[in-house]
Nucleic acid binder design. Structure first.
Lengths: 141, 141
DNA sequence: TCAACTGTAACTGATAATATTACAGTACCG
DNA sequence: CGGTACTGTAATATTATCAGTTACAGTTGA
């Protein structure tokens, strides 16, 4: 899977952590260790899915618009990485005579589709808020 | 994830399906739709993990050495794709002052590690035998 | 001793992931 | 107004990863 998901989660946790709940793409990029353009692309997607507001122009940036405890990793996963489990390579060939070769792609797709659901269910149990707590706990130790 | 896992599963199902339980890398590659070298690489790994025997030389090939119902997808996953869930890109920087940036990589790794376990648990419930049955059922429909 | 196999390494080409550059659009602030 | 500080997005370059190909040594059976 590409790391847009990681960038999104990191950014949301960061916003949740900041006193104002707000930051620019430059600040986020610096914190995440990537470039601002990429951050803006990911943020743009998060905005479309209603996790944050953006303000253009001077003094603008990104601001969380939901409680960190209400945003699950599953929400984020669905927004920008759903279905990323299955390799984009397909084995077998529907036109072949062999039962195995001709049906493998479909059966395998089913396996990965359900795996994706399992993964999503796991992510459902983790929130931006809980990740932030986890990080803060780590600091004290 | 790369598709070695898919090739391995397909190959094992194919072997389980063939009357003799045996095939050469050329035959498997043809069925899977890839090249023999790649098949041999994957098979070599499956042999090392005890799922099949190989016979070199004329008349050789690969042969299942365990019952299809006993080989789970988790076994295969562990053999050649474990840990493939996490993107190989890491966000944040341990050297930074910010709590979030400096701890994100570790916390994220934990999330993906557990996700990997979840995925493995799901794969534990699927066997080469059950996949073959699923394919045969599909044919009759 | 030949033909049919596996086991690997080295190389090539294709595709996907990431970073960079560039610029239009928007909002605040003097 | 006009300048500055932002976002949004397209186009391009760069790098990494994946897959296919070629080549050849080692093994086995006929």
């Amino acid at each position: 899977m590409n790391s847009d998901f990681v960038i999104a989660v990191h950014s949301l946790v960061l916003l949740a952590h900041l006193p104002e709940g707000m930051a620019t793409s430059d600040e986020i990029a610096e914190n995440v260790c990537t470039n601002p353009v990429r951050v803006r692309k990911v943020m743009s997607c998060l905005r479309k899915n209603g996790f944050l507001d953006t303000r253009e122009g001077s003094g603008g940036g990104y601001k969380l618009c939901r409680a960190p405890e209400e945003i699950t990793l599953a929400d984020v996963y669905r927004s920008l990485a759903a279905g990323s489990l299955a390799p984009n390579w397909c084995s077998g060939d529907p036109k072949k005579d062999c039962v195995v070769s001709s049906n493998m792609a479909e059966v395998m797709a089913g396996v990965f589709c359900e795996a994706d659901r399992q993964l999503e269910a796991y992510f459902e149990r983790i929130t931006i808020g809980s990740m932030l707590s986890g990080i803060k706990a780590k600091q004290q130790a």
